[in-house]
Simulated scan of single mutants.
Amino acid sequence: MIELPLTELRAGLMASLAVPRWVDDVVRVAPFESVSQLLDVASAAATPLSASEIDEAIAHHPRIGEKPVGDGAAQAFSRNEQAGLGSDEEDLAAEIAAGNVAYEQRFGRVFIIRAAGRSRAEILTELERRLELPNSSELEIVGEQLRDIALLRIERLWATPAEDDLS
């Protein structure tokens, strides 16, 4: 059984996905029997996210390849998620930066991708692919990426290496 104070649960969820409706929907189900149940509820509540919720969530994400500003939990997550991108691929970093500009001009929002576990080359390839999509398809992908990022963050917050629950 995961028994967290609601303030701690809310704060962790907001750092994972800054969408108040989603946080409320997930908290409403607490307490959770396991991290798996929490992840299932969180995933269902984030599927799909509305366009305005995507905008809310994106406001808390730095551009891919840029250092997050601030010291909050969401910024710490972003630093950790982008840490694996390395700095030895400067040409790729410049191409991603240029891609970010093109993406923002095309879609009017920051490019969002689950960076954890991906190389700069993989991110650049996906950025270039997604630049060619219609806005409606891209918006759906952004929502999926935000959900995936949130689920990874929830796991980092509350899963233990040896077990699936916090009892």
Score class of each variant (00 low, 15 high):
Trp22Pro: 06
Phe32Asn: 08
Glu144Ile: 10
Glu126His: 03
Arg118Glu: 07
Ile54Lys: 07
Leu92Phe: 05
Val69Arg: 11
Ala51Asp: 12
Gly143Val: 00
Gln37Arg: 15
Asn135Leu: 12
Gln37Leu: 13
Leu146Asn: 08
Ala15Met: 04
Ile123Asn: 05
Pro62Phe: 03
Pro134Ala: 11
Asp165Cys: 15
Gln37Pro: 10
Arg147Lys: 15
Gln145Arg: 09
Trp158Lys: 15
Ala44Asp: 12
Glu126Thr: 04
Ala102Val: 01
Ala83Ser: 04
Ala11Gly: 14
Arg10Gln: 14
Glu8Thr: 12
Gln145Cys: 10
Thr125Glu: 10
Leu151Thr: 10
Asn135Gln: 10
Glu155Pro: 02
Glu95Val: 00
Glu140Thr: 12
Ser119Asn: 11
Arg156Asp: 11
Leu151Tyr: 02
Arg109Lys: 09
Val23His: 01
Val29Phe: 08
Glu140Asp: 09
Ile149His: 05
Ala46Met: 07
Gln75Arg: 11
Glu53Trp: 04
Leu49Asn: 13
Leu38Val: 04
Trp22Thr: 06
Leu124Ser: 11
Glu89Trp: 00
Val29Tyr: 09
Val110Gln: 04
Arg28Glu: 13
Ser87Gly: 01
Leu85Pro: 01
Ile2Asn: 14
Ala93Tyr: 02
Glu128Leu: 09
Ala116Gly: 05
Ser34Asn: 10
Glu33Thr: 14
Ala76Asn: 02
Ala83Val: 07
Glu155Ala: 12
Gly99Trp: 04
Gly65Asp: 04
Leu85Ala: 07
Glu33Trp: 08
Glu144Trp: 04
Pro31Thr: 05
Leu151Asn: 08
Glu90Leu: 03
Leu131Val: 06
Ile96Gln: 01
Ala42Tyr: 09
Ala74Leu: 09
Val69Thr: 13
Ser16Ile: 08
Glu126Gln: 07
Arg147Phe: 07
Glu53Phe: 09
Thr47Ala: 13
Gly108Asn: 03
Gly12Lys: 07
Ala76Met: 11
Arg129Pro: 02
Glu140Arg: 13
Ile149Tyr: 08
Ser119Pro: 03
Pro20Tyr: 02
Gly65Ala: 11
Glu122His: 02
Ser50Leu: 10
Glu140Lys: 15
Ala76Cys: 06
Ala44Asn: 13
Leu49Ile: 11
Leu124Tyr: 00
Ala159His: 14
Glu95Arg: 01
Phe107Trp: 00
Pro20Thr: 00
Arg156Gln: 14
Leu38Trp: 05
Gln75Tyr: 00
Glu89Gly: 06
Ile112Gln: 01
Glu138Pro: 00
Leu9Asp: 13
Glu53Pro: 01
Arg28Ala: 15
Ala46Asp: 10
Val110Ala: 03
Ser43Phe: 09
Pro161Ala: 04
Leu85Asp: 04
Glu3Tyr: 12
Asp24Asn: 10
Ala159Tyr: 10
Ile141Tyr: 01
Asp148Lys: 14
Asp165Arg: 15
Glu126Lys: 00
Arg156Gly: 12
Arg106Asp: 06
Ile113Val: 11
Ala115Thr: 08
Arg129Lys: 09
Phe32Ile: 06
Ala159Lys: 15
Ala42Met: 15
Leu157Ile: 08
His61Trp: 03
Glu66Pro: 05
Glu66Tyr: 07
Glu132Pro: 03
Ser43Gly: 15
Glu132Thr: 09
Ser119Met: 04
Gln75Cys: 02
